[in-house]
Design a protein around this nucleic acid. Structure first.
Lengths: 244, 244
DNA sequence: GCATCAAATTCATATATACGAATATATGTT
DNA sequence: AACATATATTCGTATATATGAATTTGATGC
């Protein structure tokens, strides 16, 4: 009744165990926010030593997939995109107020996936997708203009929900209504002159320099879930990196 | 004749060992590119187990300070800033040529440190600093305009060297001529309308949007060595991040 | 119910040991 | 001198074990 690893036996054992653990998350047997089995349980289930278990878990912690808490357990980490709006933009609060960002979906339509969207979502061009137009505001001032595309098949449940119920954060909303949790994302930044539609939504002059971000969001199974493009005034752009 | 740790004994042993190893690098006893003692030597010198040594080294590897090579040894990592020019900017090569970037120092002067420079270098405002004006070119086209400040005291050797000998990469040049190796850096990005001087150097119209980067470079002892501000056309800006 | 204390659970630290893999060094052969 | 081979060195993987720290759970008393 010992576990037999299904993957490549040329890899070190802790790597193969890492892959097994990751598969449990990708295939939704272990869900975000939940505890995975204890180290002792993993030892007996997989028939490896505690050192190997810890090394495999170490890797997944470093990858941001798991989170450990001494005395409590090891949990599937829920990716936090709460502050993604502030990753590249800073909006000064006059009086140091909390700066609660609001999200407002202005329009929803089903369209055929444009080429770039289809490529990002890894679907065939022309497949039906849901397209959301959304603005992010602080103190009623529109600061980011977003265009969001979702595969219609997987996200069709969103078509029956009034736009006013979408709330300020989309990813928890997706998870709640569609059961799709976002695990990671890739973002690509450029600077562009703003187009007519975004200019109107942001209440700025057409052609003003904006930072344009294209994002693909992935599930725990690495499948693309959402493609979006958003932009905000370049004069609000601020970013910091450490180089080593 | 056993080693006694000098640091806080409330910290775990591997942490304290990490700090001891890091101090050897910060105080220049172990130099970039060189091998540190073998794991077996560290075990006997510090009187700890191999597991603890490996955990301490693991940390420094994760921090980018050390580099391990199976069968060869563990080395102090030399930070590579070769591609820093391409971290935020992409310049298309028409024919897919190698794109060899050139660096050209146009001017060198000794001035009193402006407030922002002094703050970045952690010296008192008004202290003497060397100010370099430099452009980075590809195929003779100026693409980045740089302003570089160095503490005069530490870098005075640079004042005797003809500007033509500064070469295309400054950090290896600093290390060779001044003995100061750069270990890490912090960069802060914004988008600005270009000023008159930079516009002239970049041969663009004044007021064009440029990405402005402010950088503080640190030595292995975490002391600031260089402060610079550089800018390049915002239309050349491209950046990619992964979010987890 | 509620607070308090004890016990159990769970991850973290530290040591010891054995063997494997990658590389460098020494040796021997031609 | 050049090459092949054996040996030594050095980091990598895997196991076993003991103890400590942080947290949760359960028992107890009021």
């Amino acid at each position: 009744m010992t576990f037999t690893f299904s993957n490549d036996d040329r890899l070190p054992l802790y790597q193969r165990l890492r892959d097994e653990l990751a598969a449990n998350i990708a295939e939704n047997r272990w869900r975000p926010g939940e505890a995975i089995p204890t180290e002792a349980e993993l030892v007996s289930h997989y028939g490896v030593s505690i050192g190997t278990v810890r090394k495999a878990v170490d890797k997944l912690v470093a990858e941001g997939v798991l989170e450990r808490f001494q005395g409590r357990g090891t949990f599937v980490r829920r990716a936090s995109f709460d502050n993604a709006m502030f990753r590249f933009f800073r909006f000064q609060s006059e009086t140091g107020e909390p700066l609660a960002p609001e999200g407002r979906v202005l329009n929803r339509e089903v369209v055929e996936a444009p080429a770039q969207v289809a490529q990002g979502l890894n679907i065939t061009a022309g497949s039906p997708v849901i397209h959301l137009t959304r603005v992010r505001l602080i103190n009623q001032r529109p600061l980011l203009s977003e265009s969001i595309w979702l595969p219609k098949e997987k996200f069709s449940a969103l078509l029956d929900i009034p736009l006013s119920e979408f709330g300020n954060l989309l990813y928890p909303f997706y998870e709640e209504r569609v059961g799709c949790a976002v695990a990671s994302a890739q973002e690509y930044l450029t600077v562009e002159p703003v187009g007519a539609k975004d200019a109107e939504l942001l209440q700025i002059a057409e052609g003003t320099a904006v930072i344009t971000v294209e994002r693909v969001a992935f599930g725990y199974d690495q499948q693309p879930l959402e493609w979006r493009r958003y932009c905000g005034l370049a004069s609000h752009f601020r970013y910091h990196v450490e180089i080593r």
